[in-house]
Amino acid sequence: MRITVLSGGVGGARFVLGVREWARRDAAARGLPEDAAHDIRVVVNTGDDWWLAGLRIAPDHDSLLYALSDQNDQQRGWGRRDETERVAAELQAWGVTPEWFTLGDLDLGVHIARTAWLREGTPLSEVYRRLGARWPLGVTLVPATETEVDTHVRTVDGQLMHFQEWWTRYRASLPATGFENTGVASAQPSAGAIEAIAGADVLLLAPSNPVVSLGPVLAVPGMREALRSASAPLVGISPVIGGRVVRGMADACLAAIGVQTDAAAIARHYGARSADGLLDGWLLAVEDAASVDGLTRAGIPTRAVPLWMRDADTSAALAGDAVALALHLG
Rank of each mutant, 00 (worst) to 15 (best):
R76N: 12
D39Y: 01
G243H: 09
R244M: 11
A191K: 10
P210I: 07
G294K: 07
L254E: 04
A264C: 08
P143L: 05
R80I: 14
T168C: 14
V19T: 05
W50D: 14
A316W: 06
T296C: 09
D105R: 01
L131R: 08
R30N: 14
E85R: 14
Y128L: 05
A116P: 00
G54V: 11
V156C: 12
A133V: 05
G183A: 14
A185C: 04
I237Y: 02
N45T: 08
L106M: 10
D62K: 07
V149A: 09
V217C: 02
L64T: 03
A27I: 12
G132Q: 12
V305Y: 05
L295T: 03
P175M: 12
V259C: 07
E165F: 02
M309F: 10
P33E: 08
S274K: 11
L17C: 13
E83M: 08
E148M: 06
E85F: 15
G132K: 03
A316D: 04
T115P: 02
L17W: 12
G215Y: 06
D276L: 03
S186I: 03
A187Y: 05
G12Y: 08
V127T: 04
A289M: 07
G178T: 09
W167Y: 15
L91H: 08
A316V: 10
T46Q: 11
E85P: 00
V139H: 04
L32D: 01
A219D: 06
L118D: 03
D251Y: 00
V305K: 00
F101I: 04
A285S: 15
V220K: 00
Q75N: 12
A37D: 09
T145W: 03
S190G: 14
N181F: 15
S69W: 10
I194S: 14
G95M: 06
V19R: 09
L91C: 06
G299Y: 10
L68G: 05
T4K: 07
T177E: 15
P301E: 12
R80G: 00
D70K: 01
A198F: 00
V246D: 00
A185R: 13
Q75H: 14
E146M: 11
L32C: 08
N181I: 00
S7C: 09
L283W: 04
W135S: 13
G183P: 07
A265P: 02
G121V: 14
I197L: 09
